[in-house]
């Protein structure tokens, strides 16, 4: 049963396991440094569908199918499905789930959705409210561009701080303690806003939220960055990562050599012309599910703090001149479960 420590952290004393996971991507993701680790990639970013929204829905369907297949679990063995995406009213998630008869929670946490869904799934399993839960999210470059920015063929220029939405999806099946990776703790983030209004600098808008959640986690657990092998943020990109490292340094938690960002890992930033790096729900989700979780499963990484970061604005709030609030939820994912003493 979860135990609250400090002000925002829950220790998941039963150490739920991620028993199945899968990642789906498209051409650009395949050509990136992690391309070979994806479970499924398509040369055609439409995935054979007529609209970009349907393409994204296809990715979510595919990633759930693969994750379930990999751990040999069927639909009726899943108690709850937590899913979200970037599109208005989270249509990719709802449409991908309409043929599966799994009790469904639709989430909106912008690009933090992988963390948000995984937090909820692990809390449900730890509290014995569910035996198996699915945490799923996706993003698609083309569906995000048309909703948040400009038509694809519009001849505009991107600024050096802008990021490239990842066309990808990730899914995790969470179950009671079985095998690594284990989920040991969660820190649910607060909404933070340090006044960034530039829609083309989302990394800067989200970095304060990541710093706030991390500091809170270290305080709550009385640990330090050195106690972990990797501190992995979702999609801060180049600018946001630098800012996070500076913020953490000023708070007395230097962690530049332990920190990496999914947005900097998924693409070769300079060769693939993605400016400040990757972004989107699918960024953190596909990096976690393709590359990080297998590394934890084989104990090459032992203790990872994973925090996907989200920018909680909308085109309306941006046009009205509002600044961009950020959020970051943290999970401690480990190659080892809690010991008996830690559970007590």
């Amino acid at each position: 049963m979860a135990k609250k420590i400090g002000s925002q952290t829950l220790l998941l004393t039963s150490s739920p396991s991620i028993i199945g996971y899968a990642a789906v991507g498209a051409k650009k993701e395949k050509e990136g440094p992690l391309g070979g680790y994806f479970d499924f990639t398509s040369e055609d970013s439409s995935f054979g569908e007529k609209t970009w929204e349907k393409s994204e829905t296809f990715m979510q369907k595919k990633v759930v199918e693969l994750a379930l297949e990999k751990c040999g679990v069927s639909d009726n063995e899943i108690d709850f499905l937590f899913a979200g995406d970037l599109l208005n009213q989270c249509i990719s998630s709802a449409y991908a789930s309409r043929e599966r008869k799994i009790p469904f929670f639709g989430l909106y946490g912008a690009c933090s959705t992988m963390s948000e869904s995984l937090c909820l799934a692990s809390m449900f399993v730890d509290a014995k409210l569910a035996n198996r839960c699915l945490a799923v999210t996706s993003s698609h470059f083309c569906s995000a561009e048309r909703q948040f920015r400009f038509p694809l063929e519009y001849g505009g220029q991107r600024t050096p701080t802008s990021q490239w939405t990842v066309t990808g999806a990730g899914a995790c099946v969470v179950a009671p303690k079985a095998q690594a990776p284990y989920l040991r703790a969660v820190t649910v983030g607060t909404v933070e806003d340090l006044g960034i209004t530039d829609i083309n600098n989302m990394g800067a808008a989200m970095a304060p939220a990541a710093a706030r959640t991390l500091c809170q986690y270290f305080q709550d657990t009385a640990t330090r960055p050195e106690d972990y092998d990797l501190i992995l943020t979702g999609d801060l990109g180049f600018v946001g990562s630098r800012l996070l490292e500076r913020l953490m340094q000023s708070e007395g938690y230097p962690m530049a050599n332990l920190h990496n960002d999914c947005g900097l890992m998924i693409f070769d930033r300079l060769k693939q012309d993605v400016h400040a790096g990757g972004s989107g729900c699918g960024c953190a989700a596909s990096v976690l599910c393709s590359f990080i979780l297998p590394q934890i499963a084989c104990q090459r990484l032992k203790d990872v703090l994973f925090l996907a970061t989200g920018a909680l604005m909308s085109p309306t709030s941006t046009q009205q001149g509002e600044s961009i609030p950020g959020i970051a939820h943290l999970l401690h994912i480990s190659a080892f479960p809690h010991t008996k003493e830690e559970q007590a």
């Binding site: 600098n201 800067a204 600018v239 800012l243 500076r246």
Partner: peptide, 9 residues
């Protein structure tokens, strides 16, 4: 800080 860390066009 943001201005210092953001590459310019």
């Amino acid at each position: 800080w943001t201005q210092e860390e953001s590459p310019r066009s």
